[in-house]
Amino acid sequence: MNSVYKTVLLDHFHNPRNKGDLDSMDRVKRGSNPRCGDDIEVGIRAENEILESVRFRGRGCSICLASASIMSECTIGLTMRQARHLVQQMLDWFGDTISEAPSNTTLAALGAVRQHPARKKCVLLAWVALDETLEIK
């Protein structure tokens, strides 16, 4: 059985990066899934179009929270344009329009979840919220 609970995912669940206070963020967006009670907020702070900080807080299942943590780690330092591109890659990867993981070893840890359609939304919740923070002009 190909468990979704890979070491990397568990590490991000147990030791979430960039989690907590969002007070110093420029933009915050909420992602929630009333069907399972996942409810998180994602915030960004950017300087000259570069993401200086990406943070999140909230509650959810391990996959949702680990995905948010992994996302924060993978997007800090990117330009907003690069971040939007990465979000799109994630959506395509989980929407099965591409089969390759975005070239990033940490993200690959989320790949096993692709076999479980009911939980794809848990992975994407943070990413969709991030996308919305990136969209605001």
């Binding site: 059985m1 468990s3 399972c36 959810g60 949702c64």
Partner: peptide, 11 residues
């Protein structure tokens, strides 16, 4: 989260 309980149980 209960979804994690059910997923691990399923495994």
């Amino acid at each position: 989260h209960p979804h994690d309980i059910a997923q691990i149980a399923g495994e």
